[in-house]
């Protein structure tokens, strides 16, 4: 057990692991200290006196611009963005992936290739045309507009994910269902859907973390009162007015990172599968 190889191996891993954990630790301890203690002490020392006031302040009092109702506003905005975006994007992409895998029609593959190539185009190239489209249909600046944007940009990777999954299912199952007389929607709802719960979980993980963590689309397509949490966090931390309250900032940071972290720690190996798939998104 304590061979030289093992000491080296585990020693390295533990040191690296500590490095990875350090920021999380610093975040937590800073958020539990009062400002006087932060000014005096060092960021690595545990709090002498634990206070939850920074958390309360971050959640309900921190200011962005004129609003001083804390991160709670951004949190609920993010919820109202993430939930419909996840449902809509997965609904569209799963049906589409199913159509591509099992009901191939002429030309379908061409559109699919454009879609996948589109996933590699920097968003900056498409930001402005989408602003115009959303303005034309009257959704610019609204949460619905952002939901549409997330559904659009989630489509390539999710469609690929579902197409590959449905393609890997035995073709004969699909044929048997057709002989049994089930149609497009019947096969999707009664055969495919019950068989593909794992891939739906992967897609949900992928989308929840991706959409929750988004900053660029949030800042482009929403207004201050509809900002998602990430945008609000950045505004709180990087606002130039007033005294910097590092403990409040760190509490706000943890709050913002909490949802994806919880998803991550609960989902474990499925998360790895999800990001391996989502990594293509870049």
């Amino acid at each position: 057990m304590f061979s030289r190889r093992n000491i080296f191996l585990y020693g390295t891993l533990v040191v690296v692991a500590l490095y990875y954990l350090l920021p999380l630790y610093v975040m937590v301890v800073t958020s539990l200290k009062g400002m006087p203690e932060i000014r005096l002490g060092n960021i690595f020392s545990p709090p002498l006196e634990i206070t939850f006031e920074p958390w309360v302040k971050a959640w309900s009092q921190a200011c962005t611009g004129l609003n001083c109702d804390g991160l709670s506003r951004g949190f609920w905005n993010s919820v109202r963005i993430t939930v419909p975006s996840v449902i809509l994007s997965i609904a569209i992409a799963s049906v589409n992936g199913y159509a591509l895998a099992n009901w191939r029609f002429k030309g379908a593959d061409t559109f699919f290739v454009i879609l996948i190539v589109g996933a590699f185009i920097p968003y900056q190239v498409m930001i402005y045309p989408i602003v115009i489209i959303l303005r034309e249909i009257g959704l610019y600046g609204s949460l619905s507009g952002l939901v549409i944007v997330h559904s659009i940009f989630g489509m390539p990777i999710l469609t690929l994910l579902f197409r590959n999954y449905f393609t890997s299912m035995p073709e004969e199952l699909f044929r048997a269902a057709r002989v049994d007389g089930a149609g497009f929607w019947g096969i999707y709802l009664r055969i495919m859907l019950p068989m593909s719960l794992p891939i739906f979980v992967v897609a949900i993980i992928l989308q929840v973390t991706g959409i929750w963590n988004d900053f660029l689309f949030g800042v482009v397509y929403t207004r201050p009162d509809t900002y998602p949490m990430t945008v609000q966090l950045n505004n709180i931390v990087n606002s130039v007015q007033g005294v910097k309250e590092y403990n409040v900032n760190m509490a706000a940071t943890i709050l913002t990172g909490l949802v994806p972290l919880i998803v991550y720690f609960i989902s474990g190996k499925l998360f790895v599968r999800g990001i391996a798939a989502g990594a293509v998104k870049g």
Binding site: P170, R175, A176, V179
Partner: peptide, 12 residues
């Protein structure tokens, strides 16, 4: 009616 090589039974 059709019978398949992999049986193609609906697993659920």
């Amino acid at each position: 009616g059709m019978v398949f090589q992999s049986y193609a039974l609906y697993p659920q």
